[in-house]
Design a binder for these strands. Structure first.
Lengths: 266, 266
DNA sequence: GCAAATTTGTTCGTATGTATT
DNA sequence: CAATACATACGAACAAATTTG
């Protein structure tokens, strides 16, 4: 046989979208109508739509209909090279960042965290969790983990559920002379967990992945750089582009707009 | 009603996976068996499995069965801060990179490419496309775009379908004294196109996203940095972690293993 | 505010096709 | 070739969400 019917239907609708016959935001014909148009069963039409939904081309809403997805105008997040925070812009405009009061907790470190911070298994750590919004939109969740040892050594505020005005890194340098000499970012992409899907209002089927950045901060020691902090930042991939600059480059705002479509030649 | 039946079944199976009752790589009971066990129809069981597949917890293979996904031991790719290439390691071992002969073509630039390279609409560009393998596994596809102007000015090899031994950036500096003074990486995450799904052997339903890095190279001019090259590198997100280092940090190989599970406390 | 109409979501049953062992 | 497992396809009925009158 040539190709399954639901794939043929999906391909036909996809083509209508590409050609512009169906425009972003436009409603697809109802399942009943498509069933008649393609001489298929409603379930087969639903398989076709499910295919398109899974590819991110279509969204279905109970009671309303199915619609061609409209690409969100993405936030452009420039990752910080130094201790300064990230900056966010959209459409050539810098946007203000709203941060919640942190949720601060003390936990036992899981094995992977203990390994990354070179702590003994289930050593105590302080976690500081911030939710961050831009333009009213949930933008990222950031959680930093510090060994409890740092609090004991005098960095009391780490364990308090208040923002640290000057930033945690500056605070650690002031109070216990702990200076970050470098950091490593590790970038992972995968489906959101339940809490992340809730916070970002992502569909709970996990088809829109999140980008997780693990930033390990290092300080100096006789044995060379040793880790003292892990910061986990999570972004929804459907509304964010991450930018990393090296050397001399123009401002993101001055530069040409980055593409949403990844089409470069014709 | 509480929760739909297929979700209850999915949740139950998911929990068996989390608890370790079903281990990575292990085969799930057949759909018929699950149908009897949960007193549901086969279609409902299939909906549950579809849910788990879409979340990346389970894989189904026609004629064989459904299996708990085994996390691929990920490649750790350290992005180059300078002109040097990326390095790849896995399990604390540096791996060799095998690169195909480039596919070299001349195109008219699409609008977004012309905008990024500040060319007039549909100016001609040379594209150089490399497929790169590590350990026999398709690892990334890299395509660089150069204004045709650079060839005209003497960088003839850019338009030849042969690897440039010293690297394109060194070659451009040698032949036409074009020096890169900085670059910007823009990172996008989304479903693969058909060619990418084929190259990486990704399921064609687009549930495993690819990571696309657009690297714009800048050179000096009287008006400040101007772009002269765009490199597009695509990675499959299911087998890659990207690492970016700043300042003084230990070697990736010396450092603790990065987590696949994103669980940090207990 | 409620009822009807519309649309997608869930669930069942059944039959047949295709891939693998 | 036969057995097993998943994939595709059809039909039917009711539930839930949303819009409209």
């Amino acid at each position: 046989m040539a190709e399954s019917m639901y794939r043929q239907v999906a391909r036909d609708i996809e083509q209508k979208i590409q050609v512009g016959d169906l425009r972003p935001g436009e409603q697809l014909p109802s399942e009943i109508e498509l069933r008649d148009r393609y001489n298929a069963s409603r379930n087969t039409v639903r398989d076709a739509i499910r295919w398109l939904v899974s590819r991110g081309l279509v969204e279905s809403k109970a009671g309303q209909g199915s619609f061609v997805t409209r690409g969100l105008d993405p936030f452009v997040t420039t990752l910080a090279a130094g201790p300064e925070p990230e900056t966010v812009s959209r459409g050539g405009e810098v946007l203000a960042l709203v941060t919640t009061r942190p949720r601060v907790e003390v936990h036992a470190a899981a094995d992977n965290l203990a390994g990354m911070l070179r702590l003994r298994a289930s050593a105590r750590v302080v976690s500081r969790r911030y939710e961050r919004f831009v333009d009213g939109v949930p933008w990222s969740v950031q959680t930093s983990f510090y060994p409890m040892d740092l609090v004991t050594r005098g960095a009391d505020y780490l364990a308090w559920a208040e923002p640290i005005k000057q930033g945690a890194l500056a605070y650690l340098e002031e109070t216990i002379a702990l200076k970050q000499i470098g950091h490593r970012d590790t970038l992972l992409v995968g489906p959101p967990d339940e809490a992340e899907a809730r916070f970002f209002s992502l569909p709970e089927d996990g088809r829109i992945p999140v980008i997780t950045i693990l930033r390990t901060g290092y300080t100096d020691s006789r044995q060379g750089p040793v880790p003292f902090r892990l910061t986990v930042t999570v972004f929804a991939s459907d509304r964010n582009q991450l930018v990393i600059n090296y050397g001399e480059v123009p401002s993101v705002l001055d530069d040409a707009v980055e593409p949403r479509r990844r089409v470069f030649t014709r």
